[in-house]
């Protein structure tokens, strides 16, 4: 069977950073992670770091599976890698960036969501059939338990909305 194109992804769990390659199809990474028929995501050439020292590689494996439910963030280098669903405007011509702060059990995240008009936090968090993972852009991520560790950054990423504990819009200029 022909191989799908693969991309590099930084998966972040509550304790680890896993940099690896993931095969994606036309639906991009969001299609892979929001596929309800698979609870695992297959990865290749994975390198693992602890969150307290995210640059230090502590181990690697050739092929493995990650449990989607425990993935908090999936960071990519190119926005396009997220897939077309991440840019769906629901018929609206333009998506507007909206600064947000998001907390999970292990992270404090400041970034932007893109919405067609006024931010509806409930609609975003409930997903409205869109799957577990939603896009977040231009984000800075601090590991709550290791605030002295270097912050992670992401021009584009997906966040597991089922793990979000708080989600709030920030007034522009205060992000």
């Amino acid at each position: 069977m022909a191989r799908q194109p693969s991309i590099n992804v930084d998966f972040i769990t509550d304790t680890h950073r896993i940099t690896c390659r993931v095969e994606i199809g036309a639906t991009g990474l969001i299609g892979v992670l929001n596929n309800v028929h698979a609870s695992l995501v297959d990865v290749e050439a994975a390198y693992v770091s602890r969150l307290q020292d995210p640059a230090k590689i502590i181990g690697n494996f050739e092929i493995g599976s990650l449990n989607k439910s425990n993935l908090v963030l999936a960071i990519v280098t190119k926005k396009e890698s997220l897939g077309p669903q991440a840019f769906s405007s629901g018929g609206y011509k333009q998506l507007l960036p909206c600064p947000v702060i998001v907390t999970t059990a292990a992270f404090e995240i400041r970034g932007e969501v893109e919405v067609p008009g006024k931010l509806d936090a409930n609609a975003l968090l409930m997903g409205q059939g869109g799957g577990k993972f939603m896009p977040l852009f231009r984000a800075k991520i601090v590991a709550t338990h290791y605030p002295e560790a270097p912050a992670l950054a992401a021009d584009a990423m997906l966040i597991n909305r089922t793990l979000v504990s708080a989600f709030a819009a920030i007034a522009r200029g205060k992000a």
Partner: peptide
């Protein structure tokens, strides 16, 4: 590298 976090660059 594909590890492009600021921490990677600093390291």
């Amino acid at each position: 590298t594909a590890r492009t976090q600021p921490a990677d660059q600093e390291g």
